[in-house]
């Protein structure tokens, strides 16, 4: 496999290209900081989480399961369920990034998110093959994500009771809009509906965050079962 270019120029192109995502990531990170504050995380814990996990959806989902002491097994499975899609995103980069030395490819993957991944693949499709684009756009958005988390946490402290300003509803609001985006790509609403119904039932029967995992597993199995070879149920 021949190595693609990986230059500072590509990195800078990523920084510039990532700029259009700045408003969205700033808002999203601020919202996460406020949610983390409402869930009882300190500002250091919230910022550490954003820096070390760097995965917005999974971070928000684990907050829903968060408690004191931390239910370790449940938050781990929630993170795996939300981040399982990264397996696909990473796999799709193999033909392009496969020729890079591992220290470049694996470092780039650390800052891979849904949006800069999609943007990088678009670059590639348009013939710009510099693989540092992913790292450049990812570095920008990660730094922004981390700092916005801190700012959001401080906002949360100033606002006081999270219920008054609907902060406790933010997760549901972000996730329902995320669902709308996912469904548009999947053309299949069945996993969402099954996950929702199973979670509602399990939540009534079993105390704790297990309903999240039960719904995620049940819904995703339905997605796998509905796959038909040659059908378009799962056209991505």
């Amino acid at each position: 496999m021949t190595a693609p270019p990986f230059t500072w120029r590509g990195f800078r192109a990523g920084l510039v290209g990532g700029m259009i995502l700045v408003p969205g990531v700033t808002l999203y990170g601020t919202a996460f900081g406020m949610m983390a504050q409402a869930a009882g995380l300190s500002v250091f814990e919230a910022v550490f989480m954003s820096a070390w996990m760097n995965a917005g959806g999974a971070q928000m989902a684990t907050l829903q399961a968060w408690a004191d002491p931390v239910p370790l097994f449940a938050v781990c499975l929630t993170t795996l369920a939300m981040n399982a899609r990264y397996l696909l995103l990473g796999a799709a980069l193999r033909p392009w990034f496969g020729g890079l030395p591992p220290h470049k490819s694996y470092t780039s993957l650390f800052v891979m998110g849904d949006q800069n991944w999609a943007m990088s693949l678009r670059e590639h499709a348009e013939g710009r093959r510099d693989a540092a684009f992913l790292a450049g756009s990812g570095a920008l958005l990660s730094l922004l994500w981390i700092s916005a988390t801190g700012v959001g946490h401080l906002f949360g402290q100033v606002l006081g009771n999270p219920k008054t300003f609907g902060v406790d509803f933010m997760l549901a609001a972000f996730f329902i809009t995320m669902a709308a985006a996912f469904v548009r790509r999947l053309h299949d609403i069945a996993p969402l509906v099954v996950g929702l119904v199973v979670a509602v039932i399990v939540e009534k029967l079993i105390a704790g965050p297990w309903y999240i995992l039960a719904g995620a597993l049940a819904g995703s199995f339905v997605g796998a079962l509905r796959y038909k070879p040659g059908g378009d149920a799962n056209a991505g």
């Binding site: 959806g57 989902a61 829903q64 929630t78 369920a81 939300m82 399982a84 899609r85 397996l87 696909l88 509803f169 997760l171 549901a172 996730f175 329902i176 995320m178 669902a179 996912f182 469904v183 999947l186 299949d188 996993p191 969402l192 509906v193 099954v194 996950g195 929702l196 119904v197 199973v198 979670a199 509602v200 939540e203 309903y211 999240i212 995992l213 039960a214 719904g215 995620a216 597993l217 049940a218 819904g219 995703s220 199995f221 339905v222 997605g223 796998a224 509905r226 796959y227 070879p229 149920a233 799962n234 991505g236």
Partner: peptide
């Protein structure tokens, strides 16, 4: 393809699972 369909459906099912009880 089936494993891919499973992984693809996972986050959307999780989203449903979180939003359902809130509603």
């Amino acid at each position: 393809p089936r494993v891919e369909a499973w992984l693809r459906a996972m986050p959307i099912a999780l989203v449903g699972a979180i939003v359902g009880p809130v509603a």
